[in-house]
């Protein structure tokens, strides 16, 4: 199997920057569209990226998003510096959230971000260290049914 990267790029996301929040995901989405991937692949990848990006903006100090496309899949790895997640099992539960009032006013913090990434990705991994940060990785297969 050929796992050679066809394209890869890294982005920096700043925590607390609600003005530019989402711009990295929109750039990735436009890129996937230009490449000409199937609409449902683009849709699922864009949602995963956006949810993950908003998590960084809402909870972390900053993060690096590494984005790679191979002939087989789209891989995204998001490593943040931040408080980490105390209880991943709870964080993965729909409806659980530690969002502030400000985040809720913007229409977020319903406790659906991580579960939504899990639902849209073919592979999802999360690793967290308290007071250091969280690493989220997900893959979306380019072929085959989700």
């Amino acid at each position: 199997m050929n796992q050679r990267a066809m394209y890869s790029q890294s982005f920096t996301i700043k925590g607390g920057d609600f003005i530019n929040a989402g711009t990295v995901s929109v750039r990735i989405k436009r890129l996937l569209k230009e490449i000409g991937l199937k609409p449902d692949i683009i849709y699922r990848a864009a949602i995963c990226c956006y949810e993950a990006e908003m998590n960084v903006v809402m909870y972390a100090n900053e993060a690096t998003l590494d984005f790679t496309i191979t002939v087989e899949n789209i891989t995204v790895k998001l490593s943040d510096k931040g408080p980490g997640i105390k209880n991943i099992e709870l964080a993965m539960k729909e409806g659980y959230s530690t969002a502030t009032e400000k985040m809720r006013e913007m229409g977020f913090g319903a406790g659906m971000g991580l579960p939504n990434i899990k639902n849209n990705a073919d592979v999802f991994e999360i690793e967290s260290e308290i007071a250091k940060g969280t690493i989220i990785s997900f893959k979306i297969n380019l072929n085959g049914k989700h």
């Binding site: 449902d40 849709y43 699922r44 980490g84 997640i85 105390k86 209880n87 991943i88 099992e89 993965m92 899990k118 639902n119 849209n120 990705a121 073919d122 592979v123 999802f124 991994e125 999360i126 690793e127 967290s128 260290e129 308290i130 250091k132 049914k145 989700h146």
Partner: peptide
């Protein structure tokens, strides 16, 4: 919704917490 059209998602979830 796009998700509802699909079967149950088959994600492999792995989680690790370092204390």
């Amino acid at each position: 919704s796009n998700l509802m059209e699909n079967d149950e998602p088959k994600s492999n979830v792995q989680s690790i917490v370092h204390d």
